[in-house]
Measured scan of single mutants.
Amino acid sequence: MQIFVKTLTGKTITLEVEPSDTIENVKAKIQDKEGIPPDQQRLIFAGKQLEDGRTLSDYNIQKESTSHLVLR
């Protein structure tokens, strides 16, 4: 499924993911596309910070959901 990640600069990154993917996996995909190390990434969805060990389905992130990327 596709999800979108919006950066603070207003850029939207499109990612191909599975509901069973962990947040860690998603951060690795963002690193592949954008070159941002996962330890600098914070992903926010529905006002919550997403934890590495959880999956997209844990957070009820469905296709075409948009989460926000904040850099630390």
Results as ranks from 00 to 15, higher is better:
residue 29 K to W: 05
residue 44 I to G: 03
residue 51 E to F: 06
residue 45 F to R: 03
residue 54 R to Q: 08
residue 20 S to Q: 10
residue 62 Q to L: 11
residue 50 L to I: 04
residue 48 K to S: 08
residue 15 L to H: 00
residue 67 S to H: 12
residue 58 D to G: 03
residue 5 V to K: 01
residue 36 I to W: 13
residue 70 V to G: 04
residue 13 I to R: 01
residue 18 E to I: 12
residue 57 S to W: 09
residue 43 L to E: 01
residue 47 G to V: 02
residue 25 N to F: 12
residue 48 K to M: 14
residue 19 P to Q: 07
residue 7 T to R: 06
residue 21 D to Y: 08
residue 35 G to I: 02
residue 40 Q to C: 10
residue 66 T to C: 10
residue 17 V to W: 02
residue 48 K to L: 11
residue 55 T to K: 11
residue 6 K to T: 13
residue 52 D to M: 05
residue 37 P to A: 09
residue 32 D to R: 13
residue 21 D to R: 01
residue 54 R to V: 05
residue 57 S to N: 09
residue 18 E to F: 14
residue 9 T to K: 11
residue 10 G to S: 03
residue 39 D to F: 11
residue 63 K to G: 14
residue 44 I to E: 13
residue 4 F to W: 08
residue 11 K to W: 08
residue 60 N to F: 06
residue 44 I to T: 11
residue 70 V to T: 08
residue 53 G to L: 07
residue 38 P to Y: 12
residue 3 I to H: 03
residue 17 V to Y: 02
residue 14 T to G: 05
residue 40 Q to S: 08
residue 44 I to R: 05
residue 19 P to L: 09
residue 60 N to A: 07
residue 29 K to E: 03
residue 35 G to D: 05
residue 20 S to R: 08
residue 71 L to V: 11
residue 71 L to N: 05
residue 4 F to N: 06
residue 23 I to C: 01
residue 64 E to W: 13
residue 55 T to A: 06
residue 22 T to I: 04
residue 2 Q to E: 09
residue 18 E to K: 14
residue 34 E to Q: 07
residue 45 F to V: 03
residue 64 E to Y: 14
residue 60 N to K: 09
residue 46 A to L: 13
residue 58 D to M: 05
residue 15 L to F: 04
residue 45 F to P: 00
residue 33 K to V: 12
residue 11 K to E: 07
residue 41 Q to W: 05
residue 16 E to Q: 12
residue 21 D to V: 04
residue 22 T to F: 07
residue 40 Q to N: 09
residue 5 V to D: 01
residue 27 K to H: 02
residue 63 K to N: 14
residue 39 D to P: 06
residue 52 D to S: 07
residue 55 T to I: 06
residue 39 D to A: 11
residue 49 Q to P: 11
residue 27 K to Q: 02
residue 12 T to A: 04
residue 66 T to S: 10
residue 7 T to C: 08
residue 22 T to S: 08
residue 28 A to W: 11
residue 68 H to Y: 15
residue 53 G to R: 09
residue 12 T to Q: 07
residue 22 T to N: 04
residue 38 P to N: 06
residue 64 E to D: 14
residue 59 Y to D: 01
residue 70 V to Q: 10
residue 1 M to R: 03
residue 53 G to K: 11
residue 69 L to H: 02
residue 38 P to E: 07
residue 69 L to C: 02
residue 23 I to V: 10
residue 40 Q to K: 11
residue 2 Q to W: 12
residue 62 Q to R: 11
residue 25 N to Y: 11
residue 53 G to A: 10
residue 67 S to R: 11
residue 4 F to H: 10
residue 23 I to D: 00
residue 20 S to K: 08
residue 37 P to K: 07
residue 8 L to P: 15
residue 14 T to D: 05
residue 7 T to Y: 12
residue 57 S to V: 07
residue 64 E to P: 06
residue 67 S to I: 15
residue 31 Q to Y: 15
residue 6 K to W: 10
residue 3 I to S: 01
residue 23 I to Y: 01
residue 22 T to A: 04
residue 39 D to N: 11
residue 71 L to T: 07
residue 12 T to S: 06
residue 48 K to W: 07
residue 39 D to Q: 11
residue 35 G to R: 05
residue 9 T to F: 12
residue 37 P to T: 06
residue 18 E to P: 03
residue 22 T to H: 04
residue 25 N to G: 08
residue 23 I to K: 00
residue 22 T to W: 05
residue 41 Q to D: 01
residue 41 Q to K: 01
residue 26 V to W: 01
residue 1 M to Y: 14
